[in-house]
């Protein structure tokens, strides 16, 4: 007869109760626990579900302009978006460049760009898009979001099992958030022409400590990779075209 292990049973019970509480806090239903990969193992590992959970929001925070938060989140959003579903990009700053999006792998025929006149309109559009089950990913760069509005966005995402990526400045760290995870992006010195970033989890439902990973964007393919000193996804001599050609030109 198998001996009853009280210690293990208690641990299992606590773990189960904890997961139920988390699910209750997040309002997660059974079928919305599917996680989508961002195409970068190191980045996925930061998230509690090893990927972006459907029906959740992810906040990307960057310090000032050219922080890379927008670029990293766009690449991740493109990979996360389920096959055949449209992407809705809410471009509150009116400066997203579709040619660059195409080079990063976006299918422009399944992309809608919304350029609202105000942040209020941007917030409304974001909520509407998140509420629509047909949309794969909603990406928005909205700076000011009140706690109530944030909760509405989270409920909209939860209701439709959609995914929302919100790009904001690091000042938003002082504000409350209903995102499942908040990631802070800091640019790092580039490596052989590839952009490098440090991604830090600044708040998460699961991780009480703040894990950090270094990632890089492959300058040729526009894909995300984990970056450590020992593992480099690119050959030692990358951008042979740049190395050999002193002067490139584009003309009609």
């Amino acid at each position: 007869m198998e001996r009853l292990d009280l210690h293990n049973t208690r641990q299992r019970t606590i773990a189960e109760l904890r997961s139920r509480m988390r699910a209750w806090e997040r309002g997660a239903s059974g079928n919305s626990m599917d996680a989508c990969s961002m195409g970068c193992g190191a980045l996925d590992a930061l998230l509690p579900s090893q990927g972006v959970r459907q029906g959740s929001l992810v906040e990307w925070l960057g310090e000032g302009g050219a922080s890379g938060a927008g670029t990293v989140s766009l690449i991740a959003g493109c990979r996360v978006c389920p096959q055949g579903r449209p992407l809705v990009l809410i471009d509150a700053h009116h400066d997203l460049f579709p040619l660059s999006l195409a080079l990063l792998g976006f299918d422009l025929s399944r992309l809608v760009l919304i350029r609202p006149a105000s942040e209020r309109e941007a917030l409304w559009a974001c909520e509407e898009a998140l509420r629509c089950e047909a949309v794969g990913v909603v990406w928005a760069n909205i700076e000011r979001i009140t706690s109530t509005s944030f909760r509405r966005l989270q409920l909209a995402a939860k209701g439709s099992s959609g995914i929302g990526f919100l790009v904001r400045s690091a000042k938003a760290l002082q504000q409350p958030s209903w995102a499942e995870i908040r990631l802070k992006i800091q640019p790092r010195p580039s490596l052989r022409g590839s952009l490098c970033f440090r991604v830090e989890v600044v708040s998460s439902y699961e991780n009480l400590h703040h894990p950090v990973v270094d990632i890089m964007i492959d300058s040729l393919k526009g894909t995300l990779h984990g970056h450590t000193a020992s593992t480099h996804p690119l050959p030692l001599v990358s951008r042979m075209d740049v190395a050999t050609a002193d002067h490139r030109s584009t003309g009609a």
Binding site: R85, P86, P98, L99, L101, A102, L108, S109, L111, V112, L113, I114, R115, P116, A117, E121, W124, A125, E128, A129, C132, E133, A134, V135
Partner: peptide, 28 residues
């Protein structure tokens, strides 16, 4: 089919509220 319909409804709503010039499809 319901997804296609929902998506069309969403685009109609966005265009109506924000204006047609704010809801765009890019073409290279």
């Amino acid at each position: 089919p319901s997804h296609a319909r929902q998506y069309a409804v969403l685009l109609n709503r966005l265009s109506s509220r924000l204006g047609e010039e704010a809801v765009l499809v890019p073409c290279l």
